[in-house]
């Protein structure tokens, strides 16, 4: 359990639900201090993986650990070091905000010493004036913040957020982002699952894309963006209907009265832009405008999770 242990280690994890292979040999590690993104389409296995880490899903084979502690055989140590914000807004309607956080700290064995931290959390989450409000009376955004508070109440080094911004308005999403960034700056290891690629692009250092219970990509954000298919070149030529050689004819995207737009999918090497332009010049095409479009994470994601035809 030395300093060298990864924050989260997932080794050859398999889980079957009846006929469905929810997790099919997942394996990766997250280092302490990382901001890690877990992406994948619906039903890819993201939540199953997170629940396995939290001890709510018992895997068929393989091993998961948090800060070096096995989530099954050393569950007390592992859970003490893990905070999870669930996807659904779950709460106990019997209790007030403060009580909810106080009991949660208690479940982790914390006594009086937790109370100043709870006050601080309430302040950080802008919930101080709602401390004595019943959970039922809170808006969705406030409930979400209480859930984050519950996940942080025992000061876990590893924090997992399962789609924290699903169905959340833009303003609150920004707020949550800055909160999570602050947690990361304070030294927490953050694991974020999300549907919003924009979110992963904005926040995460390293990203795993999973699909059908398998890791289909695991890389830094920069390297993931630099993968293969990363540019599209759009060219506008004067002339409706210039004489295009056959090689270029199928690149026509659309034709207007003023111009024709051709688009070329390029590899990542710089030469290819020149090659295309040379080809156009050789064909005697007059270029009036060119535009290079950089693919974003979404394109990479779509490419990687596309169903094989």
């Amino acid at each position: 359990m030395g300093r060298s242990s990864p924050a989260v280690a997932i080794e050859q994890v398999h889980k079957r639900f009846d006929q469905v292979r929810a997790l099919n040999g997942i394996e990766f590690a997250i280092q302490p201090g990382e901001f890690f993104g877990l992406l994948g389409p619906n039903g890819a296995g993201k939540s199953t993986l997170i629940n396995a880490l939290a001890g709510l899903v018992l895997v068929d084979s393989g091993r998961l650990s948090v800060m070096g502690y096995d989530v099954r055989s050393q569950y007390r140590e592992a859970r003490q070091r893990l905070g999870v914000v669930p996807q659904e807004l779950v709460y106990d309607p019997f209790f007030k905000v403060y009580e909810t956080l106080r009991f949660q700290a208690g479940y982790f064995g914390l006594g009086r010493e937790a109370e100043p931290w709870i006050e601080e959390l309430l302040h950080e989450l802008s919930l101080t004036d709602k401390a004595q409000a019943n959970m039922r009376s809170l808006s969705g955004g406030m409930k979400r913040r209480v859930l984050i508070g519950q996940a942080l109440v025992h000061k876990p080094p590893v924090v997992v957020l399962d789609e924290p911004t699903a169905g959340v308005d833009v303003e609150l999403r920004r707020q949550l982002w800055s909160l999570v960034k602050r947690l990361h700056q304070d030294g927490h290891t953050i694991v974020l699952t999300t549907h919003y690629l924009e979110e992963a692009e904005e926040l995460c250092d390293r990203i795993a894309i999973i699909n059908h219970g398998k890791v289909v990509a695991l890389d830094t954000k920069a390297d993931l963006l630099a993968r293969g298919i990363s540019k599209t070149l759009h060219v506008h030529t004067r002339e409706p209907a210039p004489n295009l050689p056959p090689a270029l004819a199928d690149k026509v995207k659309y034709v207007t009265d003023d111009y024709i737009e051709l688009s070329f999918t390029l590899g990542s090497d710089e030469d290819s832009v020149m090659q295309v332009l040379d080809m156009l010049r050789d064909a005697g095409v007059k270029i009036i405008d060119i535009r290079v479009e950089q693919d974003d994470l979404e394109d990479v994601f779509v490419q990687l999770t596309r169903e094989p035809n």
Binding site: G55, L56, Y75, R79, Q80, V84, P86, E88, V90, Q104
Partner: peptide
């Protein structure tokens, strides 16, 4: 059953309570 159906049992099950 309330904790189970509303889902807040989650926050008990992820603690070190045996």
């Amino acid at each position: 059953i309330q904790s189970k159906i509303t889902g807040n049992l989650f926050f008990v099950l992820i603690t070190p309570i045996s």
